[in-house]
Amino acid sequence: MDNYPLLNIFWTMLELFLWILWFFLLFKIITDIFRSHDIGGWAKAGWLILVILVPLIGVLIYVIARGKSMGERDVAQAKQSEAAFKSYIREAAADGTPAGEGPPGGRSHVDDLAKLAELKSSGAISDEEYRKAKEKILA
């Protein structure tokens, strides 16, 4: 340990962190190139060649040229995922399957009501959906 001072450990950790950050950014950009629907195949190939062959300059040019639309695509995908999740929750809550006849393992009415209460408190389902699902469970 005497041959490797504390400052060198700090610089080594900083370099490692920057490498990880660099690869994260590179993979994020490559993913965005394939996810982008507003550019054609040849443009995607051109961006990929630029980013892979001249990585530092290619990544900087991509972030400057398409950074704003990259963020917009991320937000749109997050909204789409959230909408799909909420839709799944609503379908599962309004399924109509009685609690005892559901999946194997036999959930009780109490378990189903507790899950419904959690969904309502988290805002995943509305009061009306909660009321309907509760009536189905208790029926």
Rank of each mutant, 00 (worst) to 15 (best):
G41N: 05
L26D: 01
L119D: 06
M70T: 11
Y4R: 12
M1E: 10
D32T: 10
K28N: 13
S69Y: 04
L18V: 12
A133W: 01
A117F: 00
A93G: 01
G96V: 07
A139K: 13
R107I: 02
A133E: 02
G71A: 12
G71P: 08
A43Y: 02
P5I: 03
L14H: 10
Y130G: 06
F27R: 10
L25I: 14
P5W: 02
A65I: 03
R90W: 04
N8D: 12
D95Y: 01
L14Q: 11
T31G: 11
K28L: 12
E128A: 11
H109Y: 09
A83L: 14
E118P: 02
S81H: 15
V51P: 00
A124P: 01
V75Y: 13
N3D: 14
A124E: 09
L7Y: 12
G41P: 03
A99L: 02
G67W: 01
A94I: 10
K86D: 10
M13I: 08
M1F: 12
Q80M: 08
H109R: 14
I57M: 07
G100F: 05
G41R: 04
N8Q: 13
P5G: 05
F17S: 12
T12I: 00
E129W: 05
G58M: 01
Q77H: 05
H109C: 06
Q80F: 13
E15G: 14
G102K: 07
L21G: 10
S36D: 15
R66C: 04
A94W: 02
L7P: 01
I57D: 05
T97V: 15
L16Q: 13
P104M: 08
L18Y: 07
P5D: 08
H109I: 10
H109S: 12
G96W: 06
A83H: 10
A84E: 15
A45D: 05
E129T: 08
I30N: 00
